[in-house]
Simulated scan of single mutants.
Amino acid sequence: MSTGEPEAVDAFEQLGLTSYEAKVFIALHQLGAGTAREVADITDVPRSQVYSVAESLEDRGLLEVQQANPIRYRPVSVEEARDTLRDQFEREQDRAFEYVETVKNEPAGEETQEDIWTVRGRDRVDDRTVDILSQAEERIVFGTRLSELITEPIERALAERAAAGVAVIIVSRREEIKRQFAGVEGVTVEDPPAHRTDDQRSGRIAIADDDGILLSVLGGEGGETAIWSSGSLFATVLIQLIEASDEMQVQ
């Protein structure tokens, strides 16, 4: 898809330039070099504004100024401009996220609440499942009735934790899931209790050690919705309740 000037101006704005800066920069590349009058003639940037815009572009390292009468401006090469804007974007990104890193764990002055989270959408549930499984150090219980809910990253996370010595139990009555893990060392596949029937809305359950859990249901616009908790009293109690019931006999 070809990009027109309005789209290019929008893109430059996303990179931090103003609309006038983008238009002047583009105009100078069209001209090769030019005066404020020549730039104003081919853009909607007033001539009186070209001077201040050019000064700003010079500060950004995107053009050079020839001290002539009248003053002439020449843009840096496209490749140099690309590198300059990339470096500036990365610096600003670092500044922004460095600040977030400094404040994210600061006490908020509130009573500590249990961390119970909701995540919606198949892809996001996939990602959160991998995160929880990857944290396991002693054991994993993973249950589902649908083979498509065991994505390649999830299968890889289960195999990697098993290889690291984590006890991995897959709970499913599906033959394709049993075959999927038949040759994976350290992974055991068990049937759920015989009296339990498949709930068509059930998604998956992932338990990591004694304090990480994710439970999902299918349906709704997002396709899948899960609650999850890790390192919390809620997670510990919920895991104990599940394992004390006859829904999942895990020793």
Rank of each mutant, 00 (worst) to 15 (best):
A108I: 13
E110G: 04
E80Q: 14
F97L: 08
P75W: 03
E101W: 11
R72T: 15
I71Y: 12
R91H: 05
G109D: 11
D87I: 12
R82M: 04
L85V: 04
A108R: 11
E106L: 15
T84A: 03
P75T: 10
V103M: 09
A108F: 06
K104P: 00
R86P: 00
E92P: 00
D83Y: 10
R74A: 15
E79R: 13
R82Q: 04
V78Q: 08
R74W: 05
E79S: 11
P107E: 09
V65N: 02
D94L: 08
R91W: 01
Y99H: 10
E92M: 07
E79P: 00
E101V: 04
Q66P: 00
Y73V: 04
R91L: 10
R95A: 14
E90L: 13
R91A: 05
D87H: 06
P107K: 10
R91T: 07
K104Q: 14
A68Y: 04
F89E: 06
R91G: 01
K104A: 14
P70E: 06
A81R: 02
T102R: 15
V65A: 02
Q67H: 14
E92T: 04
R82I: 06
A68K: 07
Q93W: 07
Q67N: 14
A68N: 13
K104C: 01
F97E: 00
A68T: 15
I71Q: 07
R82V: 02
R86I: 12
V76A: 04
E80I: 09
